[in-house]
Design a protein around this nucleic acid. Structure first.
Lengths: 348, 348
DNA sequence: TATTAGCACTCTTAAAAGCCGAGTGCTAAT
DNA sequence: ATTAGCACTCGGCTTTTAAGAGTGCTAATA
């Protein structure tokens, strides 16, 4: 059977209506609603076809039709091509002074959740490829040193280490100079054994301290990786959608959403796919969802990038009947904003 | 009417049973369950009395009784006196290397939620009275300086500031020395205008930089205050309690729990009361709860202290029929662990 | 006098029955 | 190819019914 223009129109009308109401939509509704002047009987015939083709489903005889996952997929693919703008008020909020990436992400999650009325998640940046920008060693106690590590993108990590040896002021200064001249500009991967042993050699007496410091640098990265920095917001928005908010489902869903590991899995999965590499936006509908326990939902994901190689993932999670247009619009918009903001900062 | 020993026994039995089952408990149950050998009829009479005295309630005629808030209160006060130990496996988890307070708190919330099967919240430390321990200025770009602030308790804050003037290496060194000699050991409040103007004077040429740095120091504190650092975990545990998990209530509750401001209000309230100043543990039951939207719950709060003046609040939120014994035990235990850990570190 | 047995009564909850209406599928007419 | 019309289906809602748990009261008992 052919999916001709009229069928497409009707299918779109069905999905759109369903997105709004959340109720199965019947032939009469479409007959009145859509601009093509057809009787409900005709619509019924078409709907029958559409059902046979797998785009819509009847939850039970004598109910209207609801979109199948395939139907949603069709719809999403359609508007993916069409949409591209729509300016939201995210702009103003972005202007606010943000000095820590963490804060920015938290805020972004909140904005997204508030704007879309769905749940939002944002993974913190994973910065494997990042260059070390700066190391600073300072004494805070007799035998405690503060190690501050700054990597490209101005991500700052602190750690306090116990050293068993006394380190004089001058020695400390030298260590700082040594560390910075040797390591700055290198990526994490580039700091290999060769570099390290050379470093220790030069450090002479205090090679032990160097070792501790390097541990901290590595640790800072490592911790960050396994720490699953994922910010979420608006989880309770799901209560706005009856089909998700009955006890059983809500419980499972919220629990899933609370488990950062699971979200991490989702993000990993998403990053492997990357099939719409243009914008990096992907949509998973229902059973397409890689994560068990969210099979009643859809998720729209996007990759963001803050400056050099600092990239992470955003996800909007909502019911299958989520307003894809709006979500896609909002996301694209946010991406633009981020781009602008960080281009500007870079240009400064 | 007198609350004699037998009434107390019966009351306790009722509450205990109710805590386990979550269902109204009838006279027959108690008659069989409790060790005092009485017929259900007698129990009924006593229950009637207890109801009249306000300790228990009949949700409707011909249902069993459930504890009133007053009843819970009685019960809690009883075991408050009794309990004091019970070692959990929190210990092991605490041993894990924790260098950032933030991480520790997150982990604590998780442990508490997992251990109790209720929701847990922990407020970050509020450190008004804290002494500045150390300031470090470093250059990261031509015109950008990194300001690292360490306060007592090894809380570290970073900020990057733009300076419009070039600052040479030597000048930077001098500024560092100046800042540290002038400010170290002072509390935030002690850094007043007098100190500041003296400082600027000494800084001479770079008084502008000093100003920026001080702004950052202040900002670091301020941000922290309004940033509402509250960590939560186990919100979805409420689905384990049918009386909380019906759509309406669950939604309201979880939303409340998601709003950090509200939780902050709760904590503020708690801190004003402080009536059991011994352990700082307080229990709010039902309508005693300062926060609207959690009136169907109870919350057990405690104050923790990490080292000098670094104090915050912990809350366990669950149904009114929460296992007070366990929660109180767990909390006290955690307090001890914290004390031990930080005493030890201090002694090191 | 305190306790207990017994019984009628109440009220909730669960299941069953019945009704309503939206929506379909099919047929016949246009 | 489209439409009108009609019988039929089936989920959701309300009402009814039944069952069960628990009480309160009274009268018997120790």
């Amino acid at each position: 059977m052919e999916l001709d223009a009229r069928k497409v129109t009707i299918l779109k009308a069905i999905i759109k209506t369903y997105l709004e109401t959340g109720e199965p939509v019947g032939s009469r509704t479409i007959s009145k609603y859509s601009d093509l002047q057809l009787s409900s009987a005709t619509i019924r015939n078409e709907m029958s076809d559409l059902e046979e083709m797998g785009y819509i489903i009847q939850p039970h005889t004598s109910a209207g039709r609801i979109p199948s996952d395939k139907g949603y997929r069709f719809y999403v693919d359609q508007i993916m091509e069409e949409k591209d703008q729509e300016v939201t008020e995210i702009k103003e909020l972005m202007v606010q002074r943000v000095d820590r990436v963490e804060l920015l992400l938290k805020k972004m999650a909140q904005i997204l959740a508030a704007n879309t009325n769905y749940a939002a998640m944002i993974s913190g940046p994973q910065y494997h490829q990042n260059k070390l920008k700066f190391i600073q060693l300072s004494r805070v106690d007799e035998r405690k040193l503060l190690v501050v590590t700054v990597v490209e993108g101005n991500i700052i990590k602190n750690a306090i280490i116990d050293v068993n040896e006394a380190v004089g002021d001058e020695e400390l200064l030298n260590l700082n100079i040594l560390l910075n001249t040797s390591l700055n500009g290198l990526t994490i991967e580039e700091i290999n054994l060769g570099v390290i042993s050379r470093l220790k050699e030069k450090a002479g007496l205090h090679s032990h301290v160097v070792e501790l410091v390097l541990n901290e640098v590595a640790e800072a990265i490592r911790v960050d990786e396994e720490e699953l920095e994922i910010y979420t917001s608006g989880a309770t928005n799901i209560f706005k959608y009856p089909e998700l908010s009955d006890g059983e489902k809500a419980s499972k869903l919220l629990s899933t959403f609370e488990q950062k590991e699971v979200l991490q899995d989702l993000i990993d999965e998403v990053n492997q796919n990357e099939h719409d590499s243009d914008t990096g936006i992907q949509v998973y509908i229902g059973d397409e969802m890689p994560v068990q326990g969210m099979r009643d939902c859809s998720v729209v994901t996007a990759n963001y990038e803050l400056g050099e190689g600092l990239r992470g993932t955003i996800g909007i999670i909502g019911p299958k009947r989520m307003d894809y247009e709006k979500v896609l619009g909002t996301l694209k918009n946010l991406m633009n904003q981020l781009d602008m903001t960080f281009k500007k900062e870079k240009g400064d």
